[in-house]
């Protein structure tokens, strides 16, 4: 029950900044789409006067700097926010972390609530981006059709682009794998923050100690994989990858839990 309340509480606290992020992304993408279409319409007029015809592809819009920038902003904000969702609780002297740690609830619920909040934000962002893509494509085709401008690619071609094949995999299994990888990144950031915040008398070296600890954990399976990679068949490699991933997840979870329960110092 407290977990649901905590998730509700976290979501309530992020709603403004999340709404702002979505607003910025949508404004950049649709604003740029308007500019993109207008430029091509003008260019098409010039081509027509010279007796030529213009071919516009949706990929050009998606691979343009403003569009890539909007995706990059979303990615960076979510990465930063994965750390900030913890760091903000330590902000100032009257740290809210003190209140959270003295709640009559299991501390691991704090961790889970923040984790679920971040995952909901990331998946929500991916979903909003998908709907935005669909609408952008509709506007794109409708406008160009109306102007009599030729176009080539279909909506399905969008997934051929690296960034969209990662965000919107074609199979459910791939989607689950990608979500697990995102969750792993969030878990790694969470563990880093908890270790760093647990080191008493925090200094400039605290982040380095945290990075060394987490880096050490991640280096073990990576090194083993690197050493034995050449002696294994493909399906054996896949198995080793899965075992290495599970080892990393389990170890990071144990470290995060231990530091949250026993070492976190406010």
């Amino acid at each position: 029950m407290n977990l649901l309340k905590l998730i509700g509480w976290e979501l309530d606290r992020v709603k403004k900044i999340y709404g702002l992020l979505l607003g910025v992304l949508i404004t950049i993408q649709f604003g740029w789409l308007a500019v993109f279409l207008w430029r091509n319409t003008v260019l098409n007029e010039e081509y027509r006067r010279e007796g030529q015809s213009l071919l516009v592809v949706f990929h050009s819009y998606l691979m343009s700097t403003p569009y890539i920038l909007s995706i990059g902003i979303g990615l960076i904000v979510m990465l930063v926010f994965s750390g900030w969702i913890w760091y903000r609780e330590f902000w100032g002297r009257g740290t809210f972390m003190m209140r959270l740690l003295t709640l009559p609830t299991k501390r691991i619920q704090l961790f889970i609530s923040k984790f679920i909040t971040i995952m909901m934000m990331i998946l929500g962002l991916i979903a909003v981006q998908w709907f935005a893509l669909v609408i952008e494509y509709q506007i794109f085709t409708t406008w160009l059709d109306g102007q009599g401008i030729r176009q080539q690619d279909t909506f399905a071609d969008i997934r051929q682009l690296d960034v969209f094949s990662l965000l919107y995999p074609t199979s459910f299994v791939n989607f689950i794998i990608h979500v697990m990888l995102i969750a792993f990144v969030v878990l790694t950031i969470f563990t880093f923050v908890l270790v760093e915040r647990s080191l008493w008398q925090r200094t400039i070296f605290s982040p380095l100690v945290s990075i060394a600890l987490i880096g050490g954990v991640l280096a073990i399976p990576s090194t083993i994989f690197y050493v034995i990679e050449q002696y294994l068949f493909m399906d054996e490699l896949a198995l080793i990858l899965v075992i290495g991933f599970l080892f990393s997840v389990a170890t990071l979870t144990i470290i995060a839990r231990q530091y949250l329960q026993k070492k976190l110092s406010v």
Binding site: G92, T95, M98, R99, P104
Partner: peptide, 17 residues
């Protein structure tokens, strides 16, 4: 310790200002 039964009041607020 059962945190339902023990309350801590520090010399500053523990809520966002």
């Amino acid at each position: 310790i059962d945190l339902n039964r023990v309350a801590f009041v520090p010399d500053h607020s523990t809520f966002p200002i």
